[in-house]
């Protein structure tokens, strides 16, 4: 009984609301939950991948209010009252985004595992700078 009580006392619930790919979500998270786990395991959006798990590789990239973040190292409560875009939300009305079309046309893949992060990050670049130089891309 004591164990149960102390465990319950240690659990802190943070109710958050946010949009994911344009859909309003209201969920309860614990402080230590990571955004990537919420997106993948609780919302079932598995396009964002866990790979390096240290904000280097970019496979877990999602856009938070239009800016790229590593969801593997971002606490889920940080998404409250904000807009999250994952790769699943990039296509609109069943039509691929021009970037997705371009990746297909040019075969812009290796194994494809981290392609969602590449497309989302490229989208950020092009949204702010539609005609970047080679140096700006790199």
């Amino acid at each position: 009984m004591r164990n149960t009580l102390s465990k319950r006392k240690a659990t802190q619930i943070i109710p958050i609301s946010f949009t994911v790919n344009g859909t309003w979500q209201e969920i309860d998270v614990e402080p230590q939950e990571l955004l990537l786990d919420v997106i993948r395991d609780r919302l079932g959006l598995t396009g964002s991948k866990r790979s390096c798990d240290m904000q280097v590789c970019g496979a877990c990239t999602v856009l938070l209010d239009g800016r790229p973040v590593s969801s593997c190292t971002l606490l889920a409560f940080e998404a409250r009252d904000r807009e999250v875009l994952t790769i699943e939300g990039v296509a609109q009305n069943g039509r691929l985004h021009p970037l997705q079309e371009a990746f297909i046309e040019k075969g812009g893949f290796q194994c494809g595992f981290c392609t969602p992060g590449m497309i989302l990050t490229a989208k950020v670049l092009l949204d702010g700078n539609p005609d970047p130089s080679e140096a700006e891309v790199i």
């Binding site: 904000q55 280097v56 970019g58 990239t61 938070l64 800016r67 790229p68 973040v69 590593s70």
Partner: peptide
């Protein structure tokens, strides 16, 4: 670091 780290 990188653009994602600089963001937060």
């Amino acid at each position: 670091a990188n653009i994602r780290v600089r963001e937060v």
